[in-house]
């Protein structure tokens, strides 16, 4: 099993006025291909910060993040953009679809950025939407979809570009439990079927139930890292 992402000595300080808040205090971690990781911990434990650092959306105060062996620290903004485009997928708590684009277009968007040809794009978009259970809803705009459906589109968008790592920040928090469960099952299925690697930052115990690895963070430190 190859290492998708690795983190060493990762520290992140936020300066709020005169106070420095240390969100991460020297985290070491590596994510294996095929992992389905739940980052657990109370609010302010640093799980979202860790997720953002993994996604290259934030810069560490100290330490290093590598994706597939390449350090993000030395990258330019454009290189990080390209890395996110080609190797990472994001799923957000509040879906964050592009409101003016249809479900299919949202899923297609990353493929367009990647420069995938129209025919392949179309095939992959339809297949991906079918995989997330949205066959027949391709042309609906986000405001014509339920929350669960929107998050499924977000999942489709995240996996359509065939990323090495999908980062999900509280993906079920805005969904009722039934819908949240269905979405989790979907992602688990994608994990098992396609070998997609997921990292979740979550409070949701249901995520812990389906994860194969649970990492607990308290006050910016990993206090446990267990495979199950």
């Amino acid at each position: 099993m190859s290492i998708i992402a690795s983190v060493s000595g990762l520290t992140r300080d936020y300066i709020q006025g005169t106070i420095t808040v240390r969100a991460l205090r020297g985290v070491d971690l590596s994510i294996q291909e095929g992992d389905f990781v739940a980052l657990m911990g109370p609010s302010g434990s640093g799980k979202s910060t860790l997720l953002n650092l993994l996604g290259g959306l934030d810069e560490p105060s100290a330490g290093d993040v590598s994706i597939e062996g390449t350090s993000l620290t030395d990258m330019t903004e454009a290189q990080r953009s390209n890395l996110r485009r080609d190797r990472l997928g994001f799923i957000f708590q509040s879906y964050n679809l592009i409101p003016v684009l249809s479900a299919a277009e949202n899923a297609e968007f990353v493929l367009l950025l990647q420069g995938v040809g129209p025919k392949e794009r179309r095939e992959r978009v339809f297949k991906t939407l079918a995989d997330v259970g949205l066959a027949g809803m391709e042309n609906r705009r986000p405001n014509e979809l339920s929350g669960g459906q929107q998050q499924r589109v977000a999942v489709a968008r995240a996996i359509a570009g065939k990323p090495a790592l999908i980062l999900a920040d509280e993906p079920t928090a805005n969904l009722d439990s039934e819908t949240g469960n269905a979405l989790l099952e979907l992602m688990k299925k994608l994990n098992e079927k396609n070998g997609s690697t997921f990292v979740f930052a979550t409070h949701d115990p249901k995520v812990m139930a389906v994860a194969n690895r649970v990492i607990k963070l308290v006050d910016g430190k990993i206090i446990s890292d267990e495979r199950q």
Partner: peptide, 16 residues
């Protein structure tokens, strides 16, 4: 603002 943030996260470059 938020939408642009999402686009950046998806890999859209500043120039785009």
């Amino acid at each position: 603002t938020r939408e642009f943030g999402v686009l950046r996260a998806l890999g859209v470059t500043p120039l785009q």
